[in-house]
């Protein structure tokens, strides 16, 4: 009997579960956080280079001239914006502001849409 319980199957296929908008905002928060941690060495490097000389400062400013770099940077813009907005949302909810279900749904939508728009604007500007 005991062996049978331990071998019991579990239903946990994430593709067959309908996630509420708050869960989408939350996994976005996590993914964007990972991207930001991964970009941290590059950010420290960029800081160092930018202070070296005028030429290196100009190189950094013109990074977006290559389309693949522009796309990559737009992705980081999305990560930073989403993480920031979703983070502000959580900080407010921690002190009881907007932690009711309907407000939390609205703010989750707002964070997701706003971050996407900001990233698209950045991509459009750099790729145009």
């Amino acid at each position: 009997m005991r062996a049978r319980v331990e071998a019991a199957p579990k239903f946990l296929n994430l593709l067959q579960i309908r996630f509420p908008i708050g869960a989408i905002a939350s996994i976005g928060h996590r993914i964007s956080g990972v991207l930001l941690v991964l970009s941290l060495p590059l950010l420290a490097l960029a800081l160092d280079r930018s202070l070296h000389s005028e030429a290196e400062f100009a190189v950094l400013r013109d990074l977006v001239s290559a389309p693949w770099r522009a796309v990559l940077l737009a992705l980081l813009v999305w990560a930073a914006t989403h993480h920031l907005l979703a983070g502000i949302r959580h900080l407010l909810m921690d002190v009881g502001i907007g932690s009711g279900l309907s407000q939390a749904r609205t703010s989750a939508w707002a964070a997701i849409v706003a971050a996407a728009i900001v990233a698209l604007i950045a991509a459009a500007r750099w790729l145009a």
Partner: peptide, 18 residues
Amino acid sequence: RTIMNCTEVCPKGLSPSH
């Protein structure tokens, strides 16, 4: 992590996240 899936599905309309 305040995902709030709990409050979304509570059939009694309660709010565990709160």
